[in-house]
């Protein structure tokens, strides 16, 4: 059995290090307009990829589609486009996703 205190200490160093390096690397640097534009698209790319990973779930090495997330997400998107309100859109999606989980699966 590994020494858990040593493990936690090393995990802390790795995780905090990864968090601070990106910030410090960019600290005080003047970004070119293209780089600034690039970084303005990074969040869109990352969030899109995060959503894909939540919809496509690996089960025993095979990919499966999470219908509660997919259908709930669709209704969150529709509600968001119609109402432009963040919290109600998420709540509507969760309620519909839960309904899918209990009635369709």
């Amino acid at each position: 059995m590994l020494n858990p205190w040593v493990l936690i200490g090393l995990l802390f160093l790795i995780t905090y290090g990864s968090r601070v390096i990106g910030i410090e690397f960019m600290a005080g640097r003047k970004m070119s307009p293209t780089l600034r534009l690039y970084f303005s698209y990074v969040p869109i790319a990352v969030i899109s990829a995060l959503i894909v990973k939540q919809v496509l779930i690996p089960v025993d090495g095979e990919l499966t589609i999470s219908l509660p997330v997919l259908i709930g997400g669709f209704f969150t998107a529709v509600a968001n486009l119609l109402t432009k309100r963040f919290l109600p859109s998420v709540l509507i999606g969760i309620i519909i996703g839960l309904a899918v989980r209990y009635f369709l699966i």
Binding site: I47, G72, A77, G93
Partner: peptide, 12 residues
């Protein structure tokens, strides 16, 4: 479900 649906509402 809150994770992916929040991300969708933030992305759109």
């Amino acid at each position: 479900l809150a994770f992916p649906l929040t991300f969708i509402a933030l992305l759109l």
